[in-house]
Amino acid sequence: MSFVRYKETAEEGDVVIIYLTHESMFPLTLEAGRIFQTRFGALRHSDIIGTRFGSKVLCGGGRGYVYALHPTPELWTLTLPHRTQIVYTTDISMLTLQLDLKPGSVVVESGTGSGSVSHAVIRTIAPTGHLYTFEFHQQRAEKAREEFSDHGLSSLVTVTHRNVCTDGFGLSDVADAVFLDLPSPWEAVASAKLALKKAGGRLCSFSPCVEQIQRTCDKLRSHGFCDITTIECLLRTFDVRSIALPEPDLGRPDTCAQTQQEGGESAENFTFKSAVPPKDMPGHTGFLTFATLYPQMETS
């Protein structure tokens, strides 16, 4: 299977996303004979193998059911085993578009982290692009490499274990875009510039703190990057509900003489469907700083 190409039927070895509820989803690699325990009961892998993605699969001996979904980078981001703080889909969407990514783009990323961004980037640059991703934590690099292989993405990505801030990317004139998610992104700017194509390219740096982007922007300016912009993008998810607001009982207009009604409320309601904002929402994930490297003018 491959994360970058839909297939119809789930087969042994495939990753499926088991959907119990909106808040409860798990990735599962199918192995005939194995059983996965859910809170709706035991789920036999064999019951998924051979069925169409998106089918209902009974579990707990038919008492409950789940859906077996085709993996997507977005579902993977929601369900992946966290090894680090991850970048979520709202920011990934923005950086993918703002880096002008499309099939064929060559992208450099550091750090790989839990691979959340990597999966989404690979999806967008496949089948002809390539991702060079760098991770300074050895185990994480290995784990990512393994996952990319399991997800059928090996040919599209090269994982390198390296501290790019000290040792650089070791790439020159190859990349259309660079994505930095590092504690000290400014230390990687010079090397990122080297990695970008001489014909120009885009850079994105993701950082939670203002001080980080201040230093990064300074560095970008001094290295000749242009159009430096920093944005914040927040997602607000609404709850769609039917609301019934009671109409106040203002009494009878003809006379002040009245007996107290039981409950004191008029029977009528002002009823409407509403998209109710959540009580709490993400207030900050990080700042996304973007910059353009323009082609050097040929001095004739």
Partner: peptide
């Protein structure tokens, strides 16, 4: 939204009220 102002670590709070 609340903003955390600490040396070297200034940023908006990670959570905010939705409305």
């Amino acid at each position: 939204r609340n903003f955390q102002i600490l040396p070297g670590r200034s940023r908006p709070d990670m959570q905010m009220s939705g409305t």
